[in-house]
Amino acid sequence: MIYLLLIYEFFKIGLFSFGGGYATIPFLYHISEVYHWYTLNDLTNMVAIASITPGPVGINAATFAGLKTAGILGSALATTSEMLPSFILVIIVSKILKKFSENFFVKSAIETLKPISCALLLFVSAGLLKSHIADIKALILLAVLILISWKSKKDPLFYLVIAGVTGVILKLAGI
């Protein structure tokens, strides 16, 4: 039964997430609230590891979430279910390539999905921030990272490495 639910939930993510790897986090967050397959803390670790291992973050997070939920079969199911909508859509779109991107309804839908994606991601940020809010160090590190990004655009890996190293140093210094 849990396998069917996994397929259903991750198929939905593949079909409805829009705007890059982190756009799947709102859905993973929702799953943790509804099914309690993993905790919010697990989710943070999952996304952290998904970000530093090779591969698309959204897919890696699905692999990890599936693994947490139902072992290796769960992770295989979650990963493939999340990619299945892409497979179907890509084949359809490849066949009608030109017409598709010029269609009025498709264009309007894409225009609408942009502000909705922004809202979804901010919603998740608020949720994650809540779990960090008592942690002054985290807030300072976050502010510093944002400030760096303001000065110059860096590779995502840059932030992950800098923050990870900072975390280790702070731990070792006992702060």
């Binding site: 952290a48 944002i146 923050a163």
Partner: peptide, 16 residues
């Protein structure tokens, strides 16, 4: 734990 804590914060920054 230190690295995961840091990377967790970086992920939040990356989402923003």
């Amino acid at each position: 734990t230190g690295a995961l804590w840091g990377v967790g914060v970086a992920v939040l920054a990356l989402i923003l």
